[in-house]
Design a protein around this nucleic acid. Structure first.
Length: 424
RNA sequence: GGUGAGGUGGGUGAGUGGCUGAAACCACCGGUUUGCUAAAUCGGCGUACUCUGAAAGGGGUACCGCGGGUUCGAAUCCCGCCCUCACCGCCA
């Protein structure tokens, strides 16, 4: 969420930025500015009326003690009038506040200058290409959902029996590979200086609002009505909210956190060939990295995160490319996002395995996550996060790219974690 | 699930209608003093919104779990909700 003051001071820049997202309704910015002015006006009048009541009340107390009843009664009447007026102002202010909130919720983050204009994923910029040959597969190579059956390591039908579509069951070496990847990713994050957390897998409404899942995206999350809790769609939600309502010192930067959690997504309305097998599921495992940074350092941090994620894929030996998302494809809350896609040779398509973003102050404004500078002034911090990495598509591409007639060869880096080097 | 106790500033904890944005202590920051450290001593030390000012700063309002009510006036009285802790029951 952008701040009204920021909108007031940077209207033209914001409009330019929003054009890249194909949003061209300048009137919403003016609406915010005028509602915010109205809000201030109402608050001023209300505060002044309250100030009158406060001082009058003290006088009334004194007058009663002195036995000046009549004078006191007169003041009491005056206080009564002000109270009526305050009630009116409060009602009006609440209406204005709601309208303002609604308008602000409809304004996405301002894209970073480097974000290319564009409408769809077709317009994303290839930031770093694979540039080498893709693996050559043997005759009879299969997509991962076939391999899953062949080697009996992932059972999608069993998931349907237990829960429903999109809840895979990992079995035997499939389960062990899953566990190995989680440990491997966490170890790498720890080595890179990220503090590991195991957060709750459900969050309350305040947390869901803090990172921007609510309002608006409630359809994406599983909701436990009985207890008013949401199953997390990503570790980003609980981990970032650790710093909700926190004021940091400059010396606390950088804050680097990592966490593994299962992620739950309803993915309502997405079915079809592209979501086969592990390509899109309702529950999956992911290791997330989250950073809280000084505004001047956040883009260097983003680069560092790209290098970290790229390093994981290099070590696994998976062919990948990095995309800089265009304005139309950029998430609502993000200023700049890079997607990592791994090439799945048997499917002959790129699969998104990581999304690394700088939210600048868009989340921290919601979270009330600030820091104090050397002059003791408070400013919003920058938040960033990235998948490092999301498992299912990594598993799919390992299966597909490293299949041989003898079995699926486990990448070198994972072998110490798996305890086996081939799935056959 | 049952019963009981309680939610006050970074922490402990006073405070039962006006003099309390809130004592005291601890922690923290700054000064003084002291071979160093420690101690002592003095001062400072919340957040949000807002007005004013070039700035430093100054003014107003709100906030003692959350929401509502009573009252000229509420941390203090009333109602609802949430949460925490303890014990019992159940249980990984």
């Amino acid at each position: 969420m952008l701040r009204p003051d920021f909108i007031r001071d940077n209207k033209e820049t914001i409009l330019e930025g929003l054009k890249k997202r194909n949003i061209n309704n300048p009137e919403i910015l003016d609406l915010v500015i005028s509602l915010d002015s109205k809000r201030k006006e109402l608050q001023n009048e209300s505060d002044q009326a309250q100030a009158f009541i406060n001082s009058a009340s003290k006088e009334i107390g004194a007058l009663f003690k002195q036995g000046k009843r009549e004078e006191a009664e007169g003041k009491r009447a005056a206080v009564g009038e002000k109270k009526t007026r305050i009630a009116e102002l409060k009602t009006e202010a609440e209406e204005v506040r709601q309208k303002l909130e609604e308008a602000l919720l409809n304004i996405p983050n301002v894209p970073h200058p480097s974000v290319p204009a564009g409408n769809t994923d077709e317009d994303n910029e290839v930031y770093q290409d694979w540039g080498k040959d893709f693996p050559k597969l043997h005759d009879g190579a299969q997509p991962h959902w076939e391999l899953a059956k062949k080697y009996d390591i992932i059972d999608l039908e069993l998931g349907v029996k237990l829960t429903g579509a999109g809840f895979p069951v990992y079995k035997g070496k499939g389960a062990r590979l899953q566990r190995a990847l989680i440990s491997y990713f966490l170890d790498k994050a720890n080595d890179a200086g990220y503090t590991e957390y195991i957060p709750p897998h459900m969050v309350n409404e305040a947390s869901a609002r803090g990172t921007g899942q609510l309002p608006d995206k409630e359809g994406q999350m599983y909701y436990v009505t009985e207890d008013d809790l949401y199953l997390i769609p990503t570790a980003e939600v609980p981990v970032t909210n650790i710093y909700r309502d926190v004021i940091l010192d400059e010396k606390d930067f950088p804050v680097k956190m990592t966490g593994y959690t299962p992620c739950f997504r309803r993915e309502a309305g997405s079915y079809g060939a592209h979501v086969r097998g592990l390509n899109r599921v309702h529950q999956f495992d992911k290791v997330e990295i989250v950073r809280i940074e000084h505004p001047e350092k956040s883009y260097a941090a983003l680069d560092d995160m790209l290098a970290h994620v790229g390093g994981l894929l290099d070590e696994l030996g998976l062919p990948y490319r990095i995309l800089r998302l265009c304005g139309g494809d950029l998430g609502f809350t993000s200023a700049l996002t890079f997607d990592f896609e791994v090439f799945s040779t048997a499917q002959e398509r790129w699969l998104e395995v990581s999304s690394v973003s700088n939210f600048e102050t868009f989340q921290s404004n919601r979270l009330k996550l600030r820091y104090r500078d050397a002059n003791n002034k408070k400013h919003l911090a920058h938040t960033l996060n990235g998948s490092a990495l999301a498992l299912p598509r990594i598993v799919a591409s390992i299966m597909e790219n490293f299949q041989t007639p003898e079995g699926i060869v486990v990448p070198e880096a994972l072998r110490p974690y798996c305890g086996f080097d081939i799935i056959d």
